[in-house]
Design a protein around this nucleic acid. Structure first.
Length: 169
DNA sequence: TCTATGACGGTTG
DNA sequence: GCAACCGCCATAG
């Protein structure tokens, strides 16, 4: 008898614009994870693996045109987040820091309940399964420097520039 | 439980 | 401006 875990039921879908690409891992109609990569010479719009695929494809076009992107009710698989703290931080970031705004690790810690948890917020960001949708690229250091990014700080700078920011260094 | 580890932040020299 | 420290917090093992 096979014992299929969630991992065996995952399917992937690829999207890209000229600035960055994203591979979306679906668990049914829920987003299990997102991997970011370099841009492509042409747009890839996925293959409609789920109802929300169209929304993602549209967001890729909006980003390429430097237009505002606002994710509405993304079907994220929150069961993946077992830590209450991490869930609080990710949800706070999603709700409070919209396109075109940035915050710091310390500020996000404060919004999430404890202003001294900046370092733990950094850890939560590093574990974010859904970059771009949960906008961890909008979290900078208190000094305004870039901070870190799982897919590389260059990509973080690109995303910020598409939202109207220019980070020196 | 204890220890090590970080996408941090503030202070100090 | 910067590098060295030190304090803090939430996890992982």
């Amino acid at each position: 008898m096979r014992q299929d875990g969630p991992a065996s039921e995952l399917t992937s879908e690829y999207f890209a614009n000229i600035y960055f690409s994203m591979t979306v891992w679906w668990h049914g109609q829920l987003i299990h994870g997102i991997e970011l990569g370099p841009g492509e010479s042409r747009i890839f719009s996925g293959h409609k693996a789920a109802p929300y695929s169209d929304t993602i494809a549209e967001a890729m076009r909006l980003y390429q045109n430097r237009n505002r992107v606002q994710w509405t009710a993304p079907p994220l698989d929150w069961s993946l987040i077992t830590s209450p703290f991490q869930r609080q931080v990710l949800q706070t970031l999603f709700k409070n820091i919209p396109f075109g705004r940035t915050t710091s690790y310390g500020q996000l810690a404060g919004l999430s309940g404890n202003s001294r948890s900046a370092r733990a917020v950094g850890w939560a960001m590093s574990q974010n399964p859904w970059p771009i949708i949960i906008p961890c690229h909008r979290v900078l250091t208190s000094k305004g420097t870039i901070g870190g990014f799982s897919s590389g700080t260059e990509l973080k700078k690109i995303l910020l520039s598409l939202e109207g920011f220019f980070i020196a260094q």
